[in-house]
């Protein structure tokens, strides 16, 4: 039962790693460009979950000071604050890459990576 306890204790870290690996697999191997962007988001979520888990303290309360809350254990707010910046960054990357996908679709009329590579190599041979 020792190993089960360990897994339950570290479930958020394991989840973070799982999300990271799932996202990585989609980004690298999927041929649909929009799904690759989704994979990027999943990967990012994994990193964010990891970051937020660091700040967690078992039995901790949110770091807001009330008059009667002396001696309480607070969770660490800094990782959450850092991750707010990270979320903004990933959102902007997503927006930018989606706009690129729109342009690619307008020019090639496909968003499939394999199809795109075929079209590009055909064009290169024409020249």
């Amino acid at each position: 039962m020792d190993i089960v306890d360990k897994i339950i204790e570290n479930i958020n870290y394991l989840g973070a790693i799982a999300l990271f690996v799932i996202g990585l697999r989609i980004v690298v191997l999927h041929s649909n460009l929009i799904k690759r962007i989704m994979g990027l988001n999943i990967m990012g979520t994994g990193v964010f979950l990891f970051f937020v888990s660091i700040g967690n303290v078992t039995g901790g309360v949110p770091p807001i000071i009330y008059p009667d809350s002396s001696g309480a254990v607070y969770i660490n707010p800094i990782p959450s604050v850092l991750i707010l910046t990270g979320i903004v960054v990933v959102v902007s990357i997503t927006v930018y890459s989606l706009s690129l996908v729109i342009r690619i679709y307008e020019n090639y009329e496909t968003i499939d990576q394999k199809e795109l590579s075929r079209l590009i190599s055909e064009e290169a041979n024409d020249h």
Partner: peptide
């Protein structure tokens, strides 16, 4: 045309790099 696909690839690779760094 070709700038969009190369920018997309650059973005994907770079984002893998940034998230690894993070």
């Amino acid at each position: 045309k070709d700038t969009y696909t190369s920018a997309f690839r650059y973005l994907m690779m770079n984002e893998l790099g940034s998230l690894s760094y993070l």
